[in-house]
Amino acid sequence: MDRQHDTLIIIPAFNEQENIGRVIREIRDTGYPVDVVVINDGSTDATARVAREAGAVVINLPFNLGIGGAVQTGFKYALRHGYEYAIQLDGDGQHVAAEIRKILDPVKGGEADMAIGSRYLAETDYKTPLMRRLGMLVFSFVNSALVGQKITDNTSGFRAFSRRAILFLAKYYPADYPEPEAVVVLGRNGFKIKEVPVRMRPRAAGESSINAFRSVYYMVKVLLAIFVDVFKSYQKVSA
């Protein structure tokens, strides 16, 4: 399937056979003019088959690269096929496909190079465990200070990107804790970021890659990575 629309939905998926089919069908049911690519990050289950049968293009990584490497593969695919906009969306069904337009509009309108779907911008029924909530507040404080703009949901994996951002991230997407780091890296390199309130669902099946008991460890590691990011040098990337 070649490019049919100017917007690409990138879904990183690792062992998501229970959810991925429903996620893809939900996107198609909205009728939005988007193409869908699933980056199968070395799954050991039938994620690739389920995704392909649901009508997505499937890119099979030969081994697990982690979420950062997977999403970056999506950016590279988007560049190769000439997409103008990319949307990152989780393969676990947390994100509501009908909200795609909300995060895509600011990017299409030139208001933002990255629009983040935020759980915390408006009152939502999304429940966050206490320890994670605490982590979110720390990220929000640190990242907002580094970027010079209030960012409430730094770990949201529901984001829309402009072509300029896609070009940059295809080269520099962070490897280990990509969402909070991407905010800092883009924000400090002259890209416009905007947050949009969205609804999110709790996970339907399977386990999140971050469980509550490891969140403190996760937080410390991400903060260290962000601290290092501030001092890295980035070359201008041109089309």
């Binding site: 399937m1 980056i39 293009v57 099979n60 593969t73 695919y77």
Partner: peptide, 17 residues
């Protein structure tokens, strides 16, 4: 290694198609 894996998977999809 990461770049090779990414390029490989994208090219594989094109060949498959």
């Amino acid at each position: 290694n990461k770049i090779l894996a990414q390029e490989l998977s994208i090219l594989q999809e094109e060949i498959r198609k």
